[in-house]
């Protein structure tokens, strides 16, 4: 891999890990869902850099967009606060 592409993919992976830690850590469930969707979008960019355009496309269309919609409807119909101690 080109060195710039390699540095860019390191950056994307570190951001993805930070976003997934945030997604399971925050108390607000809507914020958690949005962190999760952002993580999916970044992972789809990583798939593109790994020369898998088909997988990147389906992760962006299904993993980031439709999954987020399903989560948001579920959060809207239940409750927004995570009352974990």
């Amino acid at each position: 891999m080109n060195i710039y592409i390699l540095i860019f993919s390191y950056l994307l992976l570190v951001l993805t890990i930070i976003l997934s830690i945030l997604a399971i850590h925050v108390k607000d469930l809507l914020a958690a869902v949005i962190f999760m969707g952002g993580g999916s979008l970044l992972v789809s960019l990583v798939f593109l850099l790994l020369q898998a355009p088909d997988v990147a496309m389906s992760e962006a269309a299904i993993g980031a967009a439709l999954t987020m919609a399903i989560y948001i409807v579920a959060v809207k119909k239940t409750e927004r606060e995570d009352n974990d101690d």
Binding site: P53, D54, A56, M57, A65
Partner: peptide, 17 residues
């Protein structure tokens, strides 16, 4: 080209969303 039935179908569903 990259893509196919599953990706195109998901895009159409996103339009309806």
């Amino acid at each position: 080209t990259p893509g196919g039935g599953f990706q195109g179908g998901a895009l159409i569903a996103t339009g309806f969303l």
